[in-house]
């Protein structure tokens, strides 16, 4: 009986909170053009960053700190999961082997998914999608291998240093910007070297956005697969 009382009380409380939030949202009508800083971005994104995709330009160039924070969050997630599920000796405990279709399919598809993932984050500044979806796609590639094979494990000795190197690379790019252009995360490829200004809209444009997105793609890929690996391997009880 009490749980019904609790549920109804919860519903009432949430309705009141919902009504309050709705009143707040009514002050921000849907679909109106209230852009202030956004308008500045849209007008000068091509000139100042050389990227066609305004979102990726903002993510990497204008609001670089957020993405730096973002990459750290993912790094913390993988380290945290690693630390929490750390056991002295760990081994895969999957019991049922993937079906023939799954095994052969995953072996065949693995390189193509990887290639598709790299395509996503290399063309970040042109087509939608950047480091994060690219990295996630690479992680799904490894995920499929985990599904298919009982004893498959990602090469730890390669992935952990790669993850650290990619992160360091990102910060190093920022520090080089600090050294050259005296601002941290300064786009020294586009602003000082004026590289790729000619072929706007093609691959070699967009300043250091593709460089950073490759680093982020590798990092996200290795980290998410690291998380999947920590989850799927359990302690070996002698």
């Amino acid at each position: 009986m009490v749980s019904v009382l609790k549920r109804s009380l919860a519903i009432i409380t949430l309705l009141i909170i919902g009504y309050w939030l709705a009143q707040g949202l009514a002050g921000v009508p849907f679909g109106q053009d209230r852009m202030l800083v956004g308008k500045y971005y849209l007008e000068n994104v091509k000139a100042q960053t050389g990227a066609v995709n305004a979102v990726t330009a903002i993510v990497v160039n204008y609001r670089g700190f957020d993405t730096l924070g973002e990459v750290t969050v993912l790094f913390i997630a993988s380290t945290g999961v690693g630390a929490l599920l750390w056991r002295r000796k760990k081994k895969r405990t999957a019991k049922t082997e993937g079906s023939v279709v799954l095994r052969t399919g995953s072996e065949l598809l693995f390189p193509f998914i990887l290639m598709f993932g790299t395509y996503i984050f290399i063309h970040g500044h042109l087509t939608p999608g950047g480091g994060f979806p690219g990295g996630a796609t690479i992680a799904t590639a490894f995920l499929i291998l985990y599904m298919a094979f009982v004893d498959y494990e990602i090469p730890h000795r390669l992935f952990e240093p790669l993850e650290g190197l990619a992160g360091m690379g990102y910060v190093l790019v920022g520090l080089i910007g600090l050294a050259i252009g005296s601002y941290f995360l300064f786009d020294w490829i586009w602003q000082t070297w004026h590289w790729g200004a000619a072929n706007l809209g093609r691959l070699f444009s967009g300043g250091f956005i593709p460089v950073i997105y490759t680093l982020i793609g590798l990092k996200v890929g290795t980290e998410l697969s690291g998380i999947v690996d920590s989850m799927l391997t359990e302690e070996v009880r002698e």
Binding site: D33, I58, D66, I76, A77, L84, F132
Partner: peptide
């Protein structure tokens, strides 16, 4: 073009959401 800033913010927010969920699940385990 639509306002690009919220999309930049959400890109970060989604990954933060996944990070929190992954951490929470390992604590649950």
């Amino acid at each position: 073009a639509v306002d690009p800033i919220p999309q930049a913010l959400v890109l970060t927010a989604i990954v933060i959401g996944v990070a929190t969920t992954a951490m929470a699940l390992s604590v649950a385990i």
